[in-house]
Simulated assay, not measured.
Amino acid sequence: MKRLTNKRAIVTGAAQGIGLAIARSFVAEGACVALVDINARRGHEATEELANLGAEVCFIEVDVADSKAVDAMMAEAAKRLGPPNVLVNNAGVAVFRDPLEMAVEDWRHCFTIDLDGAWHCSRAVLPHLLKHGQGDIINIASVHASQIIPKCFPYPVAKHAVVGLTRALAIEYADRGIRVNAISPGYIGTEIVENVFASASDPEKLREETNALHPVKRIGRPEEVACTAVFLASDEARFLTAQNIVIDGGRSILFHQ
């Protein structure tokens, strides 16, 4: 039997990058998956890709910052795939600003997506999980949730809060069969990161320098984050909750470079 047989998962930010890798890995392990994203074109393309492989999937367009839209999305996912028992809060945005020059709108944009979005989706899925006495919420945080990198404000503040949300919900519902965990990726070779390399004056030099920052001498791959999400959503992780698993090739452990 596949590891996620009988799992009905919702993955936000699933149109590309880590979210798409998680959706691919989930269906490969037997899950039904609702791919959720604000980008309708890419979301439909990703869903079509998985459906052509024989997966039971659907796409729902939603802005996770809109709580009413999230409620409607959750109802639609339950109608199309059955009551969800796994939620992956992956949708997010990186906002990097100078603290004193940052507009209020930038602060709000960061938090309404990175934190409020995770809460809106969690609040909407919890009644389904509680009704069946089991389920998993997996929040995609970041190494920014534990290690501060200059010139990245206020993104680390939001990601610290995502880990706080993870721990608080985990303890609140631990005795009711609900597990809540976080994954904190470091440098991962998503399309966004590849675009950063490509935009550099010397792309290969930047790539080599970035690889060299890591004890394993490379950056991570989206599917490596997805493997951890599969584990957390599976019955193999029954005694694991309120945790934040860092996936960064050992980078954040270094004291001095």
Rank of each mutant, 00 (worst) to 15 (best):
E105L: 03
C110A: 13
Q134S: 15
P127I: 11
L130V: 08
R97G: 02
R97Y: 07
P127M: 06
F111H: 15
L130I: 05
R108E: 15
G135V: 07
R123I: 00
W107E: 01
I138T: 06
M102V: 04
E105N: 04
D136P: 00
V125S: 03
F111K: 03
E105I: 07
W119Q: 10
F111V: 13
A124F: 05
E101Q: 13
T112Q: 14
A118L: 02
D106F: 07
D106E: 14
A118M: 11
D136K: 08
R97D: 14
H120A: 09
A103R: 12
Q134C: 09
P99W: 00
L129W: 03
D106I: 05
I137F: 08
D136H: 10
G117R: 03
F111D: 06
P99G: 01
L130N: 01
L100N: 12
E101L: 13
C110T: 09
M102S: 14
I113T: 15
V104E: 14
L100R: 14
C121Y: 12
D116K: 00
D136N: 10
V125G: 00
D116L: 09
L100G: 04
L126F: 00
H109M: 11
L126Q: 02
D116H: 08
A103Q: 13
W107Q: 01
Q134H: 12
V125M: 08
I113H: 03
K131E: 15
H109C: 08
H132W: 04
H132C: 04
V125H: 01
H120Y: 15
L126N: 07
C121T: 14
V104Y: 11
D136R: 08
D114E: 04
H128N: 08
N139A: 02
N139T: 07
G135L: 06
L129C: 06
P127C: 07
G133D: 08
A118V: 11
A103K: 12
A118R: 07
H120D: 01
T112W: 05
F111Q: 09
M102A: 15
M102E: 11
A118Y: 13
W107H: 02
L126E: 06
H109D: 10
R123M: 09
M102D: 00
V104S: 07
P127Y: 09
E105F: 01
G135F: 03
D106S: 13
K131S: 14
W107C: 04
N139R: 01
E105T: 14
D106T: 01
S122G: 06
H109E: 08
N139Q: 04
W119I: 13
I113Q: 03
P99F: 12
P99S: 08
G133A: 00
G133F: 11
A103V: 05
C121A: 14
C121R: 04
W107F: 15
L130F: 05
D98H: 14
P99T: 06
L129Q: 07
D98M: 02
D114L: 04
K131N: 09
